[in-house]
């Protein structure tokens, strides 16, 4: 096994998450799951990282930040997208500011489904990512990740046609 696989350093980037995924991700570091067993170190900065763990959907303001963070990682590097938000925008898909999933902006190697995914699933995702990392180091083409997605387009929001009632006088609202 390549040494790359023995010491995956992870940087965690919270795009537009509801913090559900983040809490679950941090749980991975806790004694119950203890990802440090696999040599995983949670580093605070992309320059030291091998794996970028993204949570949450992308919006107008953080799209370039995500791109910058990704760009500042030394290759070989792998992106793990955790949670349904990262694949499609999740429950925030229809927000006025949300642009969509992470894969629109940076190449994603592993999607971890769930809202939020369980820590076990995340660890599984990281272990998969480690494999891809080793393959990338050897220059092997790695397949683009499948999106675990059933596109559910929500029905159009019902628009209230009735004009808002103007109050007649101060305090006269019924």
């Amino acid at each position: 096994m390549s040494v790359l696989a023995k010491s995956p350093w992870v940087v965690h980037f919270n795009c537009n998450s509801c913090n559900g995924c983040d809490i679950e991700f941090l749980a991975c570091l806790c004694p119950t799951y203890d990802v440090e067993r696999f040599g995983v170190v949670h580093v605070g900065n992309p320059k030291h990282a091998d794996i970028l763990v993204v949570t949450g959907s992308v919006n107008h303001r953080n799209a370039r930040v995500l791109a910058n963070v990704y760009q500042q990682m030394p290759s070989p590097k792998v992106v793990v997208a955790c949670g349904v938000c990262t694949s499609s925008g999740g429950i925030f898909a229809d927000c006025y500011n949300v642009l969509g999933g992470v894969d629109k902006f940076i190449p994603v190697d592993v999607f971890v489904p769930g809202c939020p995914p369980r820590p076990e699933a995340m660890i599984d995702g990281i272990v998969k990512a480690v494999g891809i990392l080793a393959a990338k180091a050897k220059g092997i083409e790695t397949p683009v990740a499948d999106k675990p997605r059933i596109t559910v387009s929500p029905s159009p929001k019902p628009v209230d046609e009735t004009p808002a009632q103007e109050p007649d006088e101060v305090g006269a609202v019924k």
């Binding site: 370039r64 995500l66 910058n68």
Partner: peptide, 12 residues
């Protein structure tokens, strides 16, 4: 060469 780390807010 990479830009310094500024929490990703570097001006591209």
């Amino acid at each position: 060469v990479r830009a310094p780390f500024l929490c990703g807010e570097n001006v591209p």
